[in-house]
Write a protein that binds this DNA or RNA. Structure first.
Lengths: 215, 215
DNA sequence: GCTATAACTAACCGTTTAGTACATAACCCG
DNA sequence: CGGGTTATGTACTAAACGGTTAGTTATAGC
């Protein structure tokens, strides 16, 4: 045993990008799990590979950290949605696929959904503080608009539907299954998480949307 | 001017029921506005006609207060839903009315919706602590089941729809308009609160449900 | 009217929490 | 290789927070 009288000269690996990302990863989990007020900066710091000091160094304060978490979470979907190509499918099949994808994505990314819930409890003030909110709507609506236009041209979709309304309906149906799982499944004593329950619900959501747009 | 050397003998009106109700009213607002962790017992106490000590006297701790708030909020809808009589209407008109009522009620009771969101962030643990959750589902589903049965008998509704699935769809569509208003309206730069916007959305929700159930 | 108890007040307390002061080591550029 | 800048660790603090202690007053039942 070497008796160390002084502290060992720790090998410090400096990697700002990794440090930032590490903090954001942990903070995302904590905020999603406990909300903005419920999350503890000390707890986040403890779970990172770095210290609380670094959180304040990079993000200023707790709110700045939360804004960064929200921004990154939204950037995540935007990125994925943008890469979803449905051009090779007929309009009906494309819409089915888009709705199914939305349903699957939201169910697979519970923490994103929970962050959106938390942000809505805060009336969207943090999202407002973030610069590029407007860009968020572009890909989702553009995809939907294209599918709808093709469907109308082919005579399979009816007239007079607004794409944002349609997107809202899709979002509402997919979102609920994750966001209100806890209370709904408790009150109605119904499983909403098993693969079977998800598959069942997924079909109903797709069916609901298609019955709404079809002639 | 009477120089009061001793404290004035305050006229104390003792009214336990009113005190309890007063605390619950204020606590409902605070929890709905700031969530469970964000709400402050001191702030709630300051806004009541009574003191912080009374909160602990009646509700034990902050969590006990929140459970009481949640229970009372759910009891509110249950009571109203139970008194909604739709028997005199034909099945299609009855369903239209039920969906419209749900939409209106949720939009008029934002704080209830927000409490449900908060409770879902907490994964429903407080609702679980409450005794009579099972009763909550009875009236809503019973009403829906009756309408659906009549509609099928009359040949206007199609076969094979589960009432709980249908209720979930109705809830999802109505809930979203209140719960996700902040983020959705910001991202898509669309008003979701004006009477016109509400009326428009209300029609879409009703239409969506009817297209889903009709032959 | 007396008394037990339910309803109530004010001041206080220990802990937790977001945020900081200060020191120092690694890195980059000349 | 030296010096300024970026990145990091340790230890601390003031305020906020949930909860409590100790006592007081109204009221109902005898």
């Amino acid at each position: 045993m070497t008796s160390t009288t002084a502290a060992l000269p720790r090998v410090l690996e400096r990697d700002p990008e990794a440090t930032r990302a590490n903090i954001l990863d942990i903070a995302t989990e904590e905020f999603a799990e406990k909300g903005f007020s419920g999350a503890r900066v000390d707890d986040i710091a403890a779970r990172t590979n770095t210290s609380k000091r670094m959180i304040y160094y990079y993000f200023g304060d707790k709110e700045g950290l939360f804004v960064a978490v929200i921004e990154r979470a939204y950037a995540g979907i935007r990125h994925i949605e943008a890469n979803l190509s449905l051009d090779h499918l007929g309009p009906e099949q494309a819409l089915r696929t888009l709705v199914g994808f939305t349903f699957d994505y939201q169910n697979a990314n519970e923490s994103f959904i929970r962050l959106v819930m938390v942000e809505n409890i805060h009336r969207g003030v943090h999202l407002a503080r973030s610069g590029n909110i407007a860009e968020l709507n572009v890909p989702a609506i553009a995809t939907l608009r294209d599918i709808y236009r093709r469907g109308r041209a082919a005579g399979v979709f009816r007239d007079g539907i607004d794409e944002i309304d349609l997107h809202m309906t899709i979002s509402a149906l997919c979102f609920f299954n994750v966001a209100n799982r806890a209370t709904f499944s408790r009150i109605f004593q119904r499983d909403m998480e098993s693969p079977q329950a998800l598959a069942r619900r997924r079909e109903i959501v797709i069916d609901t949307i298609l019955r709404y747009v079809k002639q």
